[in-house]
Design a protein around this nucleic acid. Structure first.
Lengths: 155, 155
DNA sequence: TAAGATTGAGTCCTCAATCTTC
DNA sequence: GAAGATTGAGGACTCAATCTTA
């Protein structure tokens, strides 16, 4: 018996969720930092972060990890490659696949921006108590997993 | 003395936040529903929701409420107007301003889509306990306000 | 035929420039 | 000149079509 009644929680979340996403996206977009004259867009930085900390990987794996379309990742890799931060190489075991790895320069840029990036979140949550942060992180992760599972169902 | 140490909470939130936003945005985009042959994009529906439930308002007020650029709202209103869901009228007290209100058709479409829209969130959080939902809503709202305040500081 | 990757077309958004009215 | 709104240009993303290799 699937209830039709909607609790106040759902109403509140449903009404505010889209607006929250935009606000959060604006905040996140504002994190664009330029350490060495490089103006890394957040999408490119997230990808660089994944590549630099996780090691070389295929484009399809990267797209899955950062939750973007493969075509978008292909273009982002092109931009990072032009900036000399990553390198493409053909997978010798499967010539269809492309492996993307960070260059020394890419590793350096990642390491240097990491603290700037994270300090923005530190400042944002400066007034929160550790308990609040921990609880939020827990529920936040739970929601992330819930949405990911929900998306898989539709395939 | 501004501490340079970053707690694990910050690291975790910082690393996953961007990916979460994309996943959530994809989920939210998938809520696009077409009740009467109308294919309302989520941005347009959020705006219609605001107009239908809040009464006529200026474009600048709408843009502020839904957290979008004024130009985007102007185009969204144009789309909703073409669909016959909202109406533009000139503010008689200030001829520069445009007031946007919902038509009878717009009110009807809003009311009919509301449950569909909200039931998606009900399904999404079906496995959560009421306590978890309440706690998450609380912290979620807190974060929303925190980001909103953070954004204002930069003006 | 299918899988991996790239490229083209189209959408939604922001920023900047412009027009009208205060 | 400043405020409210519209329009043009450009960026980031998705979907669809294409090319190469398994």
């Amino acid at each position: 018996m699937r209830g039709k009644r909607l609790t106040d929680d759902h109403v509140e979340i449903g009404r505010q969720f889209g607006i929250f996403l935009r606000r959060a996206d604006r905040f996140y977009a504002s994190l664009r930092v330029a350490p060495d004259g490089l103006d890394l867009e957040r999408g490119a930085y997230i990808l660089l972060s994944r590549i630099a900390s996780g090691g070389p990987a295929r484009l399809s794996a990267l797209a899955d990890d950062v939750c973007l379309d493969l075509s978008t990742v292909s273009r982002q890799v092109g931009a990072l490659e032009s900036a000399g931060l990553v390198e493409r190489s053909t997978d010798t075991t499967d010539k269809r696949a492309v492996l993307v790895g960070a260059t020394a320069s890419g590793q350096e840029v990642f390491a240097r921006n990491r603290d700037l990036w994270l300090s923005a979140f530190r400042d944002l949550l400066a007034d929160w108590t550790p308990a609040e942060r921990a609880e939020f992180t827990r529920l936040f992760t739970r929601l992330n997993d819930t949405i990911a599972t929900s998306g898989q169902e539709k395939r």
